[in-house]
């Protein structure tokens, strides 16, 4: 599996470290039901067979965090975007318009 890093180009997957599901949102710790929400956030996953949004870190490369869209049935990568978008990344794939 080669990951098309928006900074470095296509690089072998073993340069990257995996964190997991990128669709989770950290809950508000001040919310009344924070304990329940944190349980869901920390432990529960959709774990889809198919399109999956996920965080990868280019540890042995540019050391940037990426958001990949990948099919978990085929490992085909549909998109690789910078995890954090700002004005300097305007010309990169997937950057905010």
């Amino acid at each position: 599996m080669r990951i098309p890093c928006p900074y470095c180009g296509a690089r072998d997957a073993h340069e990257f470290a995996y964190l997991g599901d990128a669709t989770l949102t950290r809950p508000d710790p001040a919310a009344a039901d924070a304990a329940d929400r944190f349980h869901d956030y920390v432990y529960l996953r959709d774990n889809p067979a198919g399109r999956h949004q996920e965080w990868w870190y280019h540890a042995n490369g540019c050391r940037q965090w990426l958001r990949l869209t990948r099919d978990t049935r085929t490992h085909a990568i549909e998109a690789a975007e910078p995890a954090r978008r700002d004005a300097t990344q305007a010309d990169m794939p997937g950057a905010a318009s």
Binding site: G20, L44, R45, D46, N47, P48, A49
Partner: peptide, 18 residues
Amino acid sequence: GNSSRVAALAGLRLPIES
């Protein structure tokens, strides 16, 4: 291996990744 997929048919989310 497929626990999340089958459990999802019943509306459950599990503490599992495949």
